Lab assay of single mutants.
Amino acid sequence: DPDTRIPVINLEDGTRLVGEDAPKNKDLVEWLKLHPTYTVDM
C-alpha cells in the first residue's frame, strides 16, 4: 500500500520514526535520499 508508513531508524543516534512520524511507502525512496543517516528499521 503506497500510504503504509515504513518505520525508519537513524544509524547515528538510534532515533526511530514510527507511525505518523514515519515516511509513507510511496515517499520512502525520496525521503531516504533527503535523510541519509536513516535506514529502514526491520
Rank of each mutant, 00 (worst) to 15 (best):
M42G: 11
D3F: 08
K33I: 04
L28C: 07
K24R: 09
K33E: 12
M42R: 11
K24Q: 08
D13L: 02
P2R: 15
G19R: 02
A22P: 02
Y38E: 05
P7K: 14
A22G: 02
V40P: 09
V8Y: 00
H35G: 01
I9V: 14
V40D: 07
D27W: 02
Y38F: 10
V18W: 10
V18G: 12
D1R: 00
R5L: 00
Y38W: 14
D41A: 05
V18P: 06
T39V: 13
T37C: 12
Y38I: 00
K24G: 02
G14F: 07
E30Y: 05
E30T: 13
V18K: 10
T15A: 14
A22H: 07
I6P: 01
N10F: 00
K24L: 11
D41N: 06
P23N: 00
D3N: 13
P36L: 01
D3K: 14
D1W: 00
D1C: 07
D41F: 00
D3R: 08
L11W: 08
Y38C: 04
V8F: 00
P36Y: 02
Y38V: 01
G19M: 04
V18M: 14
D21Y: 10
H35K: 03
E20A: 10
K33L: 09
P36D: 01
D21M: 10
L17N: 06
K33W: 07
L28V: 09
I9A: 11
V18Q: 15
D3M: 12
D3H: 14
L34H: 12
R16N: 10
D27K: 03
G14A: 11
G19T: 01
L28E: 05
A22W: 00
V8D: 03
D27F: 05
A22V: 01
D3T: 09
L11A: 13
P2V: 01
P23L: 01
P36E: 05
L17C: 07
A22E: 00
M42C: 14
I9R: 14
K26I: 08
N10E: 01
L17Y: 09
K26L: 02
T37V: 04
P2A: 13
R16L: 12
D41K: 00
G19E: 11
N10D: 10
E30A: 14
D1G: 00
L11H: 15
V40T: 12
N10P: 02
E30C: 08
V8N: 02
L11R: 11
R16A: 12
T15V: 13
D21N: 12
W31K: 11
L34G: 12
G14S: 10
E30Q: 09
Y38R: 04
M42N: 13
L32V: 02
I6V: 15
L32G: 09
V18F: 10
N25G: 10
G19S: 04
G19C: 04
K26T: 06
L28N: 03
D27I: 04
K26D: 08
V29G: 12
D21E: 09
K26C: 10
K33D: 13
Y38Q: 08
D3L: 11
W31F: 15
L11E: 14
N25K: 14
H35Q: 02
I6L: 01
P36Q: 04
I9D: 06
G19V: 02
P7A: 14
V29H: 14
K26G: 09
D41G: 06
M42K: 03
M42W: 04
H35D: 03
V18N: 12
N25E: 12
R5I: 05
W31D: 11
L17G: 06
L34Y: 08
V40A: 15
R5W: 00
Y38N: 04
I9T: 13
E30G: 10
R16V: 14
D41M: 03
L32T: 06
H35S: 02
V29E: 14
D41V: 01
L34E: 14
L34S: 13
T39I: 10
D41L: 02
Y38D: 07
N25L: 08
W31S: 05
D1A: 01
L28Q: 00
T39E: 14
A22C: 09
M42L: 09
L28G: 05
D21G: 08
N10L: 00
D27P: 00
N25C: 07
L32W: 02
H35I: 00
I9L: 14
L34W: 07
G19H: 04
V29L: 11
D1V: 09
T39R: 13
H35L: 00
P23K: 03
R5D: 01
M42Q: 14
P7M: 07
A22R: 04
K26F: 03
D41R: 00
T15H: 11
L34M: 13
L11G: 14
Y38A: 04
Y38M: 09
N25Y: 08
K26S: 11
L17F: 09
D41T: 02
P2W: 13
T39K: 14
D27T: 03
P2E: 13
N10I: 00
P36N: 06
L28H: 10
L32F: 05
T15D: 13
D41S: 04
W31Q: 02
L17Q: 11
E20R: 09
V8Q: 05
N10R: 05
T39D: 11
L32E: 06
L11I: 15
T37K: 12
R16S: 15
H35M: 04
N10G: 05
D41E: 09
E30D: 13
R16T: 11
V8A: 03
R16W: 09
T15L: 12
P23R: 00
E20F: 06
L34P: 06
P7S: 13
K24I: 10
M42H: 12
P36H: 03
D27Y: 05
L32C: 06
I6H: 10
D41Y: 02
E20T: 13
T15M: 08
V8R: 02
G14Q: 13
R16C: 15
I9E: 11
N10Y: 00
T15N: 15
D3G: 05
G14E: 13
R5C: 07
E20K: 11
D41C: 03
G14W: 11
D3W: 03
G14M: 15
T15G: 14
P7R: 14
L34R: 13
T15I: 10
L34F: 06
D21K: 10
A22T: 03
P2H: 01
T37H: 13
L34A: 15
L28M: 07
L28S: 05
E20N: 09
M42P: 02
P36W: 01
T37G: 13
G14R: 09
I6Y: 01
A22N: 03
K33N: 11
A22D: 02
V40F: 02
N10C: 12
L11S: 15
P7N: 10
T15K: 14
K33C: 05
E30F: 02
P36V: 01
V8L: 04
D41Q: 04
T39M: 05
G19I: 02
P2F: 03
D41P: 04
I6G: 13
R16K: 14
D21R: 07
P7Q: 01
I9S: 11
L11M: 15
E30P: 06
M42I: 09
M42A: 15
L34K: 13
V29P: 14
L11Y: 14
V18A: 08
G14L: 04
E30W: 03
D13I: 00
N10H: 07
N10K: 06
L32R: 06
W31N: 08
V8I: 04
L28D: 04
G19F: 00
T39C: 09
L34N: 13
D13V: 05
V40R: 12
V8P: 03
V18D: 15
R5A: 13
D3A: 07
K26Y: 04
V40C: 10
T15Y: 03
R5P: 13
T37Q: 07
H35V: 01
G19D: 11
T15R: 14
V18C: 14
H35F: 01
Y38H: 09
K33H: 08
R5M: 08
I9G: 10
E20Q: 10
A22Y: 00
N25F: 08
